Structure formats: C-alpha cells, structure tokens
Computed example of a mutant assay.
Amino acid sequence: MSNQFFRFKEFTVYQDKTAMKVCTDACLFGAWVVDNLDMPTLKNILDIGTGTGLLSLMLAQYSKASIDAVEINPLAVEQARSNFKESKWGDQLQVHATSIIEYAQSSEKQFDLIISNPPFFEQQLKSKDSQRNIAMHSANLTLTELARCIVQLLSNSGKAALLLPWNRLEEWRGITEKIGLFIIKETLVKQSTTHDYFRVMIILQKKASPTNNDSIAIKDGKGYSKEFIKLLAPYYLAL
C-alpha cells in the first residue's frame, strides 16, 4: 500500500491529508456491514466521523442510498470530498463539515443506517500529532454522546453499526441499555487465530431482540482467513 492512497477494485481512497490511514479492521468493518444488512433497501445512510470517506465508499458500492458523511477535521473533510468526487457514486455522497453533536442539533433527517468507526480512546496517553489525537481519542466525542446522537438520528426501524475496541464492549453495553439501543449482533475480531480479541463489530436497533454472537480472525497462519477473504474479495485488488 502506498502511503498516499489505497486502491480498491471499484474506487481509490487518497489519504495524504489525513492522520488516520486506511486500516485492515476498518475495511473489514465496512465489508461486514454490507454483508449483514439488506443494502438495496436502504434510502438514507449516515457515516459519523468519515475520515477519508472509506466506509461511505464501501457502502455506496452496494447501495443506491443517499449517504451523509459527518467529519469535524477540516483536512479530512477536504480529503473525503475529493475521494467522493473522484468515485462513481459522487452524486450519492455528501460531506458535512461539523461535529456529530452539532449535526444532530440542526438536522431533522432520520436514517435507516448509521455507521461509525468512532474515536477509540478516552483519557489515555496521546501522541504529539494533534490531528491523529482528534481521530483516535474521544475528548471531542464520548461514547455516551455518540449513543445519544444515534438514538436521535436513527429511524425507528433503522440499524446502527459500530467498530469499537474489544475492551470497551462492556462499557458500550451499559450505555446502550440506559439509552434505548439494543445490540442485535456482535462479532469479535482477532488479528489472527493465535491473538486475543482486539476489536468488536456491533449492530444495534431501537427494538429489543436476541443478540447474535460470533467471531472472526483476519489472518489464519501466514495468510488471510477464509472468512476475511470472503468478505473483502469484492474490494481488495489482491483477493
């Protein structure tokens, strides 16, 4: 992978202006969301903290929905807008240069899918890169605030999908129980079959339902696992 861009089968993500680059777990998350939802039926999608626009582009490949992408970082806004414009789905994609809290306060739109790969860490050691700090740390957006925005913007029959660190799953469960969101699917993620879990992919809705639990390893031995290949084959050039 070039540091300047990541080329997929149907689109290219340029990332020279953003602190957070295309990463494997985000790609897995986007493909997993597509695999678990009825994409052709979706009409309005919201991508919270779009960064380069990766997740919006992955979803646009399989949906005719209108996709609104919210991003607080000015350089990431510029990057996402460029990536959207250069894609074949530019007319479906729109970037809003604002925080999700401000967007939720001003928007009356309801979404049948909300996705987010949110800031991962709260009150942990930060790097010297201020742009990376905004992307990785949630001083600007806590999980509780994120959940409240999702409840406000999600339609009654809609779904929300999140990628979180595995060690914050219990915290997220506690937040959602109090706020009116119900987890219907959890997929735990390992780097390889010999590693511990490090991410969790979650689907939620406003109606209580039994939770479907499973897991996936990105690699099995020296190569990608069969499950990973199946999900990423429509996107990765090498698969």
Rank of each mutant, 00 (worst) to 15 (best):
F5A: 13
F6N: 03
R7T: 15
F8G: 03
F8T: 04
K9C: 12
E10Y: 13
V13D: 04
Y14T: 02
Y14D: 00
K17M: 07
K17V: 03
K17T: 04
T18N: 00
T18A: 01
A19H: 08
M20D: 06
M20W: 04
M20E: 08
K21A: 02
K21T: 01
T24C: 07
T24D: 12
D25Y: 11
D25R: 09
A26C: 14
A26E: 14
C27E: 05
W32S: 07
W32A: 06
W32V: 05
V33G: 10
V33D: 13
V34M: 05
V34F: 03
D35I: 03
D35C: 08
N36W: 15
D38C: 14
D38T: 14
P40M: 07
T41R: 15
K43Y: 11
K43S: 12
N44H: 15
I45L: 05
I45R: 13
I45Y: 08
L46A: 09
L46H: 09
D47Y: 04
I48S: 11
I48G: 11
I48W: 09
G49M: 00
G49V: 00
G49I: 00
T50R: 00
T52W: 00
T52P: 01
G53D: 00
G53P: 05
L54T: 02
L54N: 02
L54S: 02
L55E: 01
S56P: 11
S56W: 04
S56V: 02
L57Q: 05
L57N: 04
M58L: 05
L59V: 05
L59D: 12
Q61A: 11
Y62S: 10
S63G: 07
K64G: 10
S66T: 13
I67T: 04
D68V: 04
A69P: 00
V70P: 03
E71Y: 10
L75P: 01
L75C: 09
A76Y: 00
A76Q: 01
A76G: 07
V77W: 08
Q79V: 01
A80V: 07
R81G: 04
R81H: 03
R81I: 01
N83I: 02
K85H: 11
K85M: 06
K85P: 02
S87H: 11
S87N: 08
K88V: 10
K88L: 10
W89L: 03
W89R: 07
G90P: 11
G90T: 10
D91G: 07
Q92F: 00
Q92Y: 00
Q94S: 06
H96L: 03
A97W: 09
A97S: 14
T98C: 00
T98R: 01
S99H: 09
I100V: 15
I100R: 11
I100C: 07
I100M: 06
I101N: 13
E102L: 10
E102R: 15
Y103F: 15
Y103W: 14
Y103T: 08
Y103L: 13
A104N: 11
Q105P: 09
S106K: 12
S107L: 07
E108L: 13
K109E: 13
D112Y: 12
L113I: 12
L113V: 13
